[in-house]
Amino acid sequence: MYTTELKDKNQKSVTPVAAPEDPERLAAFEARVAADDFIEPKDWMPDAYRKTLVRQISQHAHSEIVGMLPEGNWITRAPSLRRKAVLLAKVQDEGGHGLYLYSAAETLGTSREEMIEALHSGRAKYSTIFNYPTLTWADIGAIGWLVDGAAIMNQVPLQRTSYGPYARAMVRVCKEESFHQRQGYEIMMALAAGTGAQKRMAQDALNRWWWPSIMMFGPPDENSPNTAQSIRWRIKRETNDELRQKFIDVTVPQAEAIGLTIPDEALKWNAERGSYDYGAIDWDEFYAVVRGEGATAKERMQARVKAWEDGKWVRDAAAAHAAKRQVREAAE
């Protein structure tokens, strides 16, 4: 799963120039990233670079963690033991991906507690995609195929992002992610080849998840003020629109192959561009979801906070047990 870096609309964009006290260091830094060198935790870096990364990596981590909720919703109702084992393994992976990413963010000087607090208080963002409900089993197929498919499209270039710990986390994530997309497509394939009702269920899921999935790549380039800076610093390696187009181009034939229809009447192959043209995206909806409007967003945060609070006795017990063991070992 992935989140593109989101900012509140009224938030000022990152200042492209670092503190004036370090022009030489800044020049050296810029030269290093321009030469595709990796930046490591103890290297000097401009404040804005650090802040952008903390925001992007922590949002990415939050997305993995919140992303467990819509799919976890179907674990007990998976249609077979095989599907259940697979979904369980996938949700477990998402939790792991969140942990890799929190660790990468911590190397920049933020703490796990600060990040979790920012998520629970609503200050931190996570991918808008998880604020949609999972209504039917086909939604689990659509999420694996489309949401994880979009995530892979985003994350593959991030394996070469300029910040070493983030890039290494992405290598692990990408390696594990491929099964997520294939199991989702397999679910869709089975439903599309099933009874009329099953096929309608698959089509309905595609209808509801298509637009949110292509919105996952974030606002259009002309409306994405930080993209140029992030690309210059090699934090991002491709723009939102480039990645969105790539995703559409590979996904449309996959839908056709199983007899499903992409819910976009303007979708048309453009032979000149060698790409699909697609219809206008409803960005008002996107920003409403970013702001956390809607019942599902509230449900997600309530579920997160509840899990954290319900787990308190476990954290307390672990601390008490460790203290007791320390006393015992000291006595020996």
């Binding site: 697979v86 393994a89 199991q183 996959q254 192959a257």
Partner: peptide, 17 residues
């Protein structure tokens, strides 16, 4: 084995997945 992508059989005509 279902944690590995090759566990899922995707037809040859479906690409990029």
């Amino acid at each position: 084995v279902y944690r590995h992508p090759t566990f899922y059989v995707i037809p040859d005509n479906v690409k990029n997945i």
